[in-house]
Design a protein around this nucleic acid. Structure first.
Lengths: 155, 155
DNA sequence: TGTGTAAAATTCAAGCTTAAAATGTTTAGG
DNA sequence: CCTAAACATTTTAAGCTTGAATTTTACACA
């Protein structure tokens, strides 16, 4: 982009260049993943992300926790869960003692579906990142720690 | 994500981890930028991207070129340009000799607006990437070249 | 007991995004 | 001249995303 043409010293320009490159790479990868999820699993990236979070949580999650974990707005999660429920991949379960909250769980079918997608997902990433050795991957990952990642990178 | 819990060897897991970290960082940065563009310039990231592309092209661009350059669908660009035209930041200019195509240009006001946003944008990035030295930035950038970036990274 | 505040979720309006279909326009071949 | 293919753009339907407003429920405390 040409934001760099407007102002700034050499360091800030190099950082800007880095940012633009990161943006380009991640968009490219995301676009590949989206395309394959769509054509090969009739699904989407947001659905995959939600299912991944639920798959990891044995007992499901409250809508609340889900949106915090995925760092997306709560209204957003509502819509995605609606569609996953329609698909039969997820169910909403009442929480006793608090009628405000709902627990959201993968169904058995949902778990199966997700397993299939996840295996392929890892294969896709592995292929897309073919040029990156284990050392490089580790190294870049370390460098990225200097960046404004968010808290609790793991779970 | 837990895709990693399902299958794969150590290399593919390291690549997956790298991908997830990249995704997290870029989303975080994008979210910061979006927020500031919204509150401080009453604008959005997609608008900023379009304006940046037009700012770089002295004579404007055809819708065609714009969507190729930004790697987004052509229908998408139509909508964003519609809004920028409403804002008075952009104008559509007929191309003589080809009534199919339109040239899209920043207005004088649009150029001014963009300059203001771009200066701040570079400052924001510079601040967000504070932990990254010029050497690191350059280094990470090089490593990212091994990744599925798209062709013509510059313009 | 009543009331106000906080919390959990949904709804809403606006905008972004895509793939696919539709609309016009140009151009090449016959 | 006609027509089929290629082109440039817009439209459409569906889904994602956000921030803000709304609804419902829980809880503290006077």
């Amino acid at each position: 982009m040409t934001a760099g043409d407007v102002a700034g010293n050499s360091l800030s320009k190099e950082r800007l260049r880095l940012w633009l490159r990161m943006l380009r790479v991640t968009r490219q990868v995301e676009s590949e993943l989206r395309e394959r999820l769509r054509t090969e699993h009739d699904s989407t990236l947001p659905r995959f992300d939600v299912m991944a979070a639920l798959y990891a949580a044995e007992e499901g999650l409250k809508m609340n926790e889900l949106s915090k974990r995925l760092r997306v707005s709560n209204g957003n999660v509502t819509g995605i869960i609606d569609r996953l429920v329609e698909d039969g991949a997820v169910e909403r379960i009442a929480i006793e003692g608090d009628r405000r909250a709902t627990r959201v769980c993968l169904t058995v079918a949902g778990r199966d579906t997700f397993r299939g997608m996840a295996v392929e997902h890892e294969r896709w990433i592995n292929a897309l990142f073919e040029g990156v050795s284990e050392e490089d991957a580790h190294h870049i990952g370390e460098l990225l720690h200097r960046l404004p990642a968010s808290p609790n990178d793991a779970h």
